[in-house]
Each structure stands twice: as structure tokens, then as C-alpha cells.
Design a protein around this nucleic acid. Structure first.
Lengths: 193, 193
DNA sequence: GCAGTGAGGCTAATGACATTAGCCAAACGG
DNA sequence: CCGTTTGGCTAATGTCATTAGCCTCACTGC
């Protein structure tokens, strides 16, 4: 039996490709081993368990998303940055629709690499707020709003939750515009106007 | 062997309770049968498969959510309605954190009951827009924005994606306030101000 | 070249599951 | 009270994750 040239990174990368085809729920060691032309137990030499593989996929997906957002934000500010980051966020979810949910697994404190890539995603959004002059706790609230809107939109779109009646492109465009308006007016205060 | 008094509805309701304890992924016929004090194959007399049970749970959860939103919206308009519906939405996700994700499974066209309850959820949000004078395609975009924001927020909160640094209550409050402001200014138009 | 060693393959076995087949008793209608 | 249907059951199958334990390939130092 010749060596197959596997490594934790190779296995993880192939798992990411497979998961994006069949979905995280249907990612099995059997299917992954077949794709790598290897017997199932061989995978355990590189990955300790399915659960650990899922955690690795969360790191991979979150890293990819963070890189995309970071690239989009580079050299931009204000609405320009917001729009670029928002489009990059959605583009990632469209490009890897079945892997995207892996980005929503919250990192455990004992996984510094996961924590780090997750911080890059949040940081890419947080950084946009500088251009709007938002700081401190206002910035936390504003970041949460932007994250909620972006994640919510792409998650509903990805799962087919929006009806077919109208282009989601146009709706997303308006969402981004509304976020921009909301950030300009930040901090919002309660009460009727 | 005395009859256990099961029925599709009883099985589904107990499955919902179990799923909300252990999570949808760990809902097994073995655990469900044990809870109902019945052997595993007996469940097949009431539910055709695990996949079908999951679909039923989506209907149950979506119906519960729709009822909560409908109750919250009753007799209210404008910001009052928006705030009540938003709080009800979040309260449902908090009350049934591990069942909530079942509400995100899009209904299939051949499941009229599922389609109906899903429409009630969307309808409860859509109806709020009347009070803001939003109609037609503007209303579709606005509904999508509100749904995205609400689902995104509760989904990230539920999965522990928000750090511990600041109260999520306050952040949610601001999110709702920002939604209100966004709806008052609807339709938003692109371009710098 | 070659013995030693460890990493990385493998087969075989186990246990949790979903699912199906087929049996048998309980409830119910005449 | 008999027959039928409904709803329990046991037993068996196939898929998976996981573990134990084997064996060989590739590389190390000589």
C-alpha cells in the first residue's frame, strides 16, 4: 500500500470541498475516505474525530470569510467599505453555501486559532465603524446590528427562505443602504420621532 | 402490551420537547422512544421517518413562532407593533433555543401546512409595514430586512456568537430602534448623502 | 546498502443508529 | 363474540463512528 500523501491539512481541505457539496450534516468519514481513495480508519491518523473535523471546518470557513472581508475592506472607508464588505460577505455565502453555516459555530476558549479567525471577521466589520465615527459601546451595538443583518440575510437566502417573487439582489442592496443610513445616525435613541 | 396512547401529534410534541433539550442533531428515535416508554420501531406507526419528524418539528416551531408574533402584533401599529413583534421573536428563540433553528427550514411546495405557518410568520412582519405606509416591492424589501435583522440577531445570540462584553438586551433594543428609523425613511435610496 | 523505527496505511470488530419485516395482542365494530 | 384494524413488539439489516492491532513504507544513522 503506497502512502496516500495525506496530512491534517489535506484531509481538512478535502473535507471542506466535500462538505460544500453534500452539506455538513452529510459529511461522513466514509464519503471523505472514498474521495481520498483511502480506507476509513486511515483518516484517524490525521483527524481525531468527526467532531474535531467539524471544528476544523469552522476554522477554515471562518478564515476564508475573514480573508474575503479583510480584502474587501482594504483601502476603503464609509459607505464604500460597508458596501464592499457586505457584498464580500454575501459572495462568500453564495460561493460556499453549504460550508457557510460552519462559520456560525462559536469558537471555544481553548481553540486560539478559531478565536483568532473569528475575531478577524468581527474586526473587519468593527473597523468599518471608524469611518462613521462610532466608538466604544456604540460600536459594539452597531457591529452586532451589521453582523445580524448580514448573517440573517444570507442565511435566509441560502436556505431558500425568501420567496421567489422578487430579486434578492435588489433587496440586499437596499439592506446595505439602510445599514449605511442607520450607521450615519448612530447612536440611535429610543422614542417616537 | 398495553397501548401507550401514542399518536402522530403526541410523538411530534414529545419530539419537540426532546429536541429543545438535546438539540435537533441529537434527536434520535432511541431517545424519543425511551422518553415515551416504547420500543423504537413503534414510532414508525406514527411517523414515517426521522426526516419526516424533522419536517413536522419545523411546522410545530414555525407555528409557535407565528402565533407568538401574531399575538404580539394584535392591536398595535407602528413602532409599538415593531417592538412587540421583535421582542416576541427574540423571546421565542430564547424560550426554545434548540428548536428555533427548525423554523429556518424552508417549506416545500407539497407541504401546504408548512407553507401556511411560514406565511403567517412572514405575514406578521409584513403587516407591520402597513403602519409605516410601505407597500408593493418596497414592502418585500423591507420585510426581508426586518426578517434578516431579527433572525440574524437571535441566531448569533443563540449560538454564542456575541462576546460577553456587553448586554445583548441593549444591543437588541438599539437594533429595533434602528429598524424603526430605517422603516420611517423607506424606501431608502442608494448614494452618498 | 542496510537494520531500526515511526508514521501511515490496512483489516476486523464493536456499538449506536435508522429502517424494514413480520408477529401478536388490544380495541373496536358488527 | 368474531373479525378486522391498529399499535405494540422482536429480530434482522445496513450505515456510520470509533477502536484495536497489524504491517509496510520511507527515512535515519551507520
Amino acid at each position: 500500500m503506497p502512502r496516500a500523501g495525506l496530512s491534517p491539512d489535506v484531509v481538512t481541505a478535502e473535507a471542506a470541498a466535500l462538505a460544500d457539496e453534500v452539506g455538513l450534516d452529510d459529511l461522513t468519514f466514509a464519503a471523505l475516505a472514498a474521495r481520498l481513495r483511502v480506507a476509513v480508519p486511515s483518516l484517524y491518523k490525521h483527524v481525531p474525530s468527526i467532531a474535531a473535523l467539524h471544528r476544523r471546518l469552522s476554522v477554515v470557513a471562518t478564515r476564508e470569510l475573514g480573508a474575503a472581508l479583510g480584502d474587501a475592506a482594504a483601502g476603503r472607508a464609509g459607505l464604500d467599505a460597508l458596501r464592499a464588505v457586505a457584498e464580500a460577505y454575501r459572495a462568500y455565502a453564495v460561493a460556499r453555501p453549504r460550508l457557510y453555516p460552519a462559520t456560525q459555530r462559536a469558537p471555544l476558549p481553548d481553540e486560539p486559532e478559531h478565536v483568532q479567525v473569528a475575531e478577524r471577521v468581527v474586526g473587519s466589520i468593527f473597523a468599518i465603524l471608524r469611518g462613521y465615527g462610532i466608538q466604544g459601546e456604540d460600536a459594539i451595538d452597531a457591529t452586532r446590528m451589521v453582523r445580524s443583518a448580514l448573517h440573517g440575510f444570507v442565511d435566509i437566502e441560502r436556505s431558500g427562505g425568501f420567496g421567489l417573487s422578487r430579486s434578492t439582489d435588489a433587496s440586499f442592496d437596499r439592506l446595505v443602504t439602510a445599514l449605511d443610513a442607520g450607521l450615519r445616525a448612530w447612536p440611535v435613541a429610543s422614542g417616537e420621532g
